[in-house]
Nucleic acid binder design. Structure first.
Lengths: 214, 214
DNA sequence: ACATCAATAACTCAATTGAGTCATTTTACC
DNA sequence: GGTAAAATGACTCAATTGAGTTATTGATGT
């Protein structure tokens, strides 16, 4: 069905045992050939091999896997990068995928699924374990909702919007055709209602709680 | 390895042929039992069966699959919903997942993977084909914008993070064990690099350009 | 060895902000 | 008609911030 093109795979992983394990897993199939294995990004960058898929440990000594994604893609733009890690927390997933990773695997993933993931990545998919996928979905699902009401008046919302835009009180006064002192009063009331005590706190809250759109 | 609990599966799919196909796929394994099959959401709601996983067509006559997710979850809150569709465009994926779908499969997915997906969904995963996963990632990668580099140093990013948290200069100094004056210097440099001239502008930029996570 | 940059620290001065209090007018609701 | 909230405006005072300047140290790179 799929064309059995031979896929060149590189590995960057500091754990020698696990790296060797991966190499032997790859050697069980004629579809894969390991063209490079390194213990750190720095080593790999010295002479980076042309390849189709890179298995990249997220937790490396020196430059971390996630930090290195951009540089590695620069070395070999067509290459797909599959992150591997023992950590499956939201932040790691989110950051690696945002940084340009093409897939994500937990290290406990069984060998056959690792091979399937390499093939998926090479053919344009984004392999993730279902649990990692769930985390990703949850992460950006949560960023949408929650709409707590702080009962700001219309005028106050208007002023808060300008705070977020970075205007100072004098500029807001001019823009809304009211006096400087009135702006200061509104700002004070906004602080009370949001339970904060500075502009930056108000701005962060306004954005993160979607009181104003950023 | 996993406890072979028998999973009760329902199907809502207007294409009779495909629905029958699913039923026979399910019958090939003793792990699954089909407890209901319907041609529309309306029909299903008349007498909705208690089940573990619902296979839900996204493109149904009458109320669409995505629109019905909330109502169906209300009928049976513990149930996991796996969407099925021939359409694999961003909007369908995004909307269904936001609406509370627990997984997503293209109809061309081979039978064994469908069974695996049902099991994944039932055990808390989010089954998606790698291609659908890719689309999801792409979707929210683009919405998380243009990773413009402002070349902030590590220390500056650290300070910027505290600005976003709403700390004043004196609090930042205490927290990072450096002098108040040093904090002010870092803040000044941050302003220069971000091309802004106030805390609120820096905070807004930091959040909206994802320089720090909010 | 030299240049560059990051991180640290200190100083000034003017502007802005945070907090508190008070007052007037309009709108809205019962 | 009275009350409550919202919008407006003004005043003070202390604290924080923005801007400019200067300087030392350590790390990096050529």
């Amino acid at each position: 069905m799929t064309k059995q093109r031979i896929l060149r795979v590189s590995i960057i992983e500091d754990h020698t045992d696990f790296r060797n394990g991966l190499v032997s897993v790859l050697s069980t199939s004629h579809q894969f050939v390991c063209v490079g294995e390194f213990g750190s990004v720095e080593k790999a960058m010295e002479n980076f091999p042309e390849c189709d898929v890179l298995l990249l440990d997220i937790n490396l000594p020196g430059k971390s896997g996630t930090e290195s994604i951009a540089a590695l893609k620069n070395e070999c733009p067509a290459m797909r990068i599959v992150m591997m890690t023992v950590f499956d927390d939201d932040e790691n997933i989110f950051n690696a995928l945002l940084a340009g990773a093409d897939g994500y695997l937990l290290k406990k993933t069984p060998a056959p699924k690792i091979l399937a993931a390499i093939e998926d990545a090479a053919t344009g998919g984004t392999p993730m374990t279902p649990f990692v996928a769930r985390r990703v979905i949850e992460h950006f699902k949560q960023s949408a909702p929650k709409q707590q009401s702080y009962e700001l008046s219309e005028r106050e919302k208007e002023i808060l919007k300008e705070l977020v835009n970075g205007l100072d009180n004098r500029m807001i006064a001019e823009k809304l055709f009211i006096s400087y002192e009135t702006v200061r009063n509104h700002v004070k009331h906004i602080y009370e209602k949001l339970h904060v005590s500075s502009r930056t706190q108000a701005v962060t809250k306004a954005i993160s709680e979607h009181i104003v759109k950023s």
